[in-house]
Design a protein around this nucleic acid. Structure first.
Lengths: 185, 185
DNA sequence: TGGGTCATGTAACCTGTTACATGATTAG
DNA sequence: CTAATCATGTAACAGGTTACATGACCCA
């Protein structure tokens, strides 16, 4: 219900093979929606079956043949239906594994928990650093006027990542402070 | 791999039936990990099968009988193994459906997109308001010294929600501003 | 008499993860 | 010689969603 539309959206920009899509996806949407290679091939097969995509084989001599997918009119309609659809609760929900751990940290020692939050913070910082290169990377992908318009929105998702990890770091800092104070009680 | 440990954690606080757990879950962990009633009953059955839980029937006269679950020693071990486990990439990943939409907004009109972000912002504000009552709600759940210690961590997850939705509102504001400027170009 | 709460689920389905398979070419 | 890249997947499983089923009691 999501990896599906990510792939459909990418194909609305132009034809790609499963292999291409896997790479495109991993440089873009993967930052906020993770997928496996195997899932990509599966979704493509299933979307072709329902007529959202068509495919044709491109024969290559020195490399394996490629199965190139194109979006159909029906596929394009489905994509826009999805994009225009009203908000659903799902889009607003937090889904955070780490918080489940935090919820049950009462059983652990405070010192361990401080370390956990420090480790968490360090990982957020690492990801934030990685994200900082994204904006210039996006520029490299821009090839025409349409892309230039699209890239505004690509950058918005990158900006979200920036906001997000900075927020997590702030939160972690506050939690570490609280735990340090708790220790001296 | 997650709703499972949420339930296991709640049962480590004391025995509960599926019905109880459904309510406890929906007032706590549901704020950052959503579940269906049906999933709760399924997970309980499967955890009993592998020996993490045991159950017994409590007969009632004027109400349906209850199937009350207790955590076993094995279940407790598994819970702590999970809590102590090193970070996995999964815990750090953003998984955000709305961002997939944003990524493809280039095909829509700017005015529509401004409205979309305003709607998004309004929903964040509504959720934030709802969350503000959580801290005092947590206090009501505290019944003993153990709970008092645990509640520190429960509140941390609530605090995350606070940080999170405020961040989303800030982000949305910046995006609206960008789009307003883009319009006048 | 209609809706809410109490209490249990099942069935079918969709989505996502893990692990594995194949095999040629190319660059260090 | 070895590892990476190109390129396709399949099989089995785990996790999550949607829809439905049952039935009694209580309150307005």
């Amino acid at each position: 219900m999501s990896a599906k539309y990510g792939l459909l959206g990418l194909l609305s920009y132009g034809d790609q093979s499963g292999y291409d899509l896997n790479r495109t996806f991993s440089h873009s949407i993967n930052n906020f929606w993770h997928t496996q290679t195997s899932q990509i091939y599966k979704e493509l097969t299933s979307m072709e079956k329902v007529g959202w995509l068509t495919s044709h084989i491109v024969y290559q001599e020195d490399k394996p043949n490629r199965k190139v997918y194109s979006i159909t009119e029906l596929g394009r309609e489905e994509l826009h239906k999805w994009l225009d659809k009203d908000f659903i609760e799902k889009e607003m929900r937090i889904r955070n594994l780490f918080l489940i751990k935090v919820f049950f940290l009462g059983e652990n020692k405070i010192d361990e928990n401080i370390l956990l939050f420090k480790e968490y913070k360090a990982r957020c910082e690492a990801t934030l650093n990685r994200l900082e290169k994204i904006d210039s990377n996006i520029e490299k992908f821009v090839e025409n006027e349409k892309d230039r318009n699209r890239s505004l929105y690509w950058k918005m998702t990158a900006r979200y990542g920036d906001y997000y990890y900075k927020m997590c770091i702030e939160w972690a800092n506050e939690m570490i402070e609280i735990l340090e104070k708790e220790k001296t009680k």
